[in-house]
C-alpha cells in the first residue's frame, strides 16, 4: 500500500452500535497531507461517528484506519495515546475545563508528551508555557491568558479549543461541528482561523459541517455521507445540486436558510 502519500487512510470502515444501529456501512477514503476536507450530511448520518472512530474515541466494528502508517484501531494503552497525540480534536461545545485558566486549558494539549507526575503537579516546561503565550498572542487571546475559560464568549472558547489542539503539533485535525454553536460572523472568523492555521502548519483537516456555503468556501474537498455511506467524494468547487440532493434528500441547507441556524437543525 502506498500510505506514505497519505496522512490518513480509511478502509472499509464499519461501525454498528450496541443497540444495532449501523452508523457506518463500509466507508473508505484517503486524506493527503494538508488537505482541508468538509464532511457534509444530515443529522444522524454518521459524521460524528466517523470522526470519533478516527482517533478511536469509539472502537470500530471492522475495517482499517491508518494514521501516518500506523493501524490505529489495533493499538492499545500507551501506543494508542502516542498515536492520538498526532491527531488534534475540536468540539462543538468546546469541552474546556471552565474553572481552569485559558493558559491551563491550552497546556492540556501537551499532556500526551508529559510525565504523569509533572502534569498532575502542574509543572509544565517553561518553553511550552512560552509557546502557549505566543500562540495566544496570534489568536488575540493574550489578555485572557489568566481568565477562567468559563468566563469567555463562545468564539473565544472555540479559539482556546483550537489552540489546545495545535499545542499537540498534530498532523490531522478532527473538527466535529466546530461552528454550530456560534453566530455566523464568529463562525466565519473561526473557519478563517482554522484554515490559516492548517495551511501554515500543513495539517490535514476533517471538518463536520452543517453549512454547505462554508464547506464550499473553505474546503478543497467534500465528503458527503448519507445513512452511514459515502455518497459524494470530490472537489468542493464543483459540487452540484444533484450531489447535494443525494446527501441531504430534498431539504438542502443552502446559504440563506442555514446561515443563521445553530446546532443540529436539519
Amino acid at each position: 500500500m502506498t500510505q506514505e502519500k497519505y496522512v490518513l487512510v480509511v478502509r472499509n470502515l464499519k461501525k454498528t452500535y450496541g443497540n444495532g444501529v449501523q452508523a457506518l456501512k463500509d466507508v473508505s477514503f484517503n486524506v493527503k497531507k494538508g488537505e482541508f476536507i468538509a464532511v457534509l450530511g444530515s443529522s444522524g448520518s454518521g459524521k460524528s461517528t466517523l470522526i470519533r472512530t478516527i482517533n478511536q474515541l469509539i472502537p470500530v466494528t471492522s475495517g482499517q484506519i491508518f494514521v501516518a502508517g500506523n493501524e490505529i484501531q489495533t493499538l492499545k494503552g500507551r501506543d494508542l495515546r502516542r498515536a492520538r497525540r498526532r491527531i488534534g480534536m475540536i468540539f462543538q461545545h468546546y469541552n474546556l475545563v471552565d474553572r481552569l485558566s485559558v493558559m491551563q486549558n491550552v497546556l492540556h494539549g501537551t499532556l500526551g508528551g508529559m510525565s504523569t507526575l509533572y502534569s498532575v503537579l502542574g509543572r509544565y516546561p517553561e518553553e511550552r508555557k512560552q509557546a502557549v503565550l505566543e500562540l495566544l498572542d496570534d489568536f488575540s487571546l493574550r489578555d485572557y491568558a489568566y481568565k477562567r475559560a468559563g468566563e469567555l464568549s463562545g468564539g473565544q472558547k472555540q479559539r482556546v479549543g483550537i489552540a489546545r489542539a495545535l499545542m499537540q503539533n498534530p498532523e490531522i485535525l478532527l473538527c466535529d461541528e466546530p461552528i454550530s454553536s456560534l453566530d455566523p460572523i464568529t463562525a466565519g472568523a473561526i473557519m478563517d482561523l482554522l484554515s490559516v492555521m492548517a495551511y501554515k502548519n500543513d495539517i490535514a483537516c476533517i471538518v463536520n459541517l452543517h453549512q454547505v456555503n462554508f464547506a464550499r468556501q473553505y474546503a478543497s474537498r467534500i465528503i458527503g455521507i448519507a445513512h452511514g455511506e459515502v455518497v459524494y467524494d470530490g472537489p468542493a468547487g464543483t459540487i452540484g445540486h444533484r450531489d447535494l440532493e443525494r446527501i441531504y434528500g430534498k431539504q438542502i441547507p443552502l446559504a440563506g436558510n442555514m446561515l443563521y441556524s445553530t446546532g443540529e437543525a436539519i
Binding site: L57, R81, R84, M89, N95, H108, L111, V120, G161, Q168
Partner: peptide
C-alpha cells in the same frame, strides 16, 4: 465532554482525572 477532549490529546487516565 472534558474527558473526551483530554483523551483525544493522548492524556492517560491519571492525567485526565487530575488535570481535567
Amino acid at each position: 465532554g472534558v474527558v473526551e477532549a483530554l483523551k483525544a490529546t493522548g492524556a492517560n487516565r491519571l492525567q485526565i482525572f487530575f488535570t481535567g
